[in-house]
């Protein structure tokens, strides 16, 4: 394990975790709105935002899947050292991190069960940038409509049709995060 694995955690876990969680909660509660998140300094392969999400939410009880673009020795060591989360395949993951194209098909992730729809994966999607433009979003957390730069429409539409099952998304770029829970309806207009 190289030295970097031991660095880049939260400097003050209770406080950094609290601020980061507020950003994540706002992101899921207000789909498509971009929030700032920091605290984590992960190795190459993870953005500040994705690293901070992992430090905030993951521990030995939450298996993580690393998709190809996020899967390298340094990332593995960093996650293991700071969170203790087991690295697993997509089907067993509570969280997955990687690029959008690697997440396909969404069916490979846990979708929840009719009695426990919460037992579903949260996908952390690394993006080039996040923008408050593009697809129209409607649903809980949105007053009328919101707009967000989604990488695709159809996959999200199919996911929301599964409600109350389905997966939830966190989009990360640099130190920004935005969310899209399964309840959000997305369309071109």
């Amino acid at each position: 394990m190289n030295a970097h694995a031991f660095e880049g955690g939260f400097a003050n876990p209770p406080q950094d975790g609290a601020f980061a969680f507020r950003a994540i909660m706002n992101a899921i509660a207000k789909p498509g709105t971009i929030f700032s998140i920091q605290g984590g300094v992960p190795p190459t392969g993870l953005s500040t935002a994705a690293g901070s999400v992992i430090l905030t939410l993951c521990d030995p009880e939450t298996p993580i899947a690393l998709m190809q673009s996020a899967d390298n020795e340094e990332v593995r060591n960093w996650i293991t050292f700071h969170t203790g989360a087991p690295i697993v395949s997509a089907a067993d993951a509570h969280f997955a991190v990687g690029a959008w194209t690697e997440m396909m098909p969404l069916k490979q992730f846990r979708q929840g069960t009719p009695e426990f729809p919460d037992r579903s994966a949260t996908l952390i999607i690394e993006c080039e940038k996040l923008e408050q433009s593009g697809a129209f979003l409607r649903g809980p957390g949105i007053k009328e409509t919101n707009r967000f730069s989604l990488p695709n429409l159809e996959a999200f539409q199919r996911n929301s049709e599964l409600f109350p099952l389905g997966v939830d998304f966190l989009f990360c770029a640099g130190s920004q995060v935005a969310g899209l829970p399964r309840t959000t309806k997305v369309s071109e207009v």
């Binding site: 909660m25 899921i28 939410l57 919460d118 949260t122 829970p181 399964r182």
Partner: peptide
């Protein structure tokens, strides 16, 4: 984590 899934459902 429970809060986030609660908000999502």
């Amino acid at each position: 984590r429970a809060i986030l899934k609660g908000l999502a459902i």
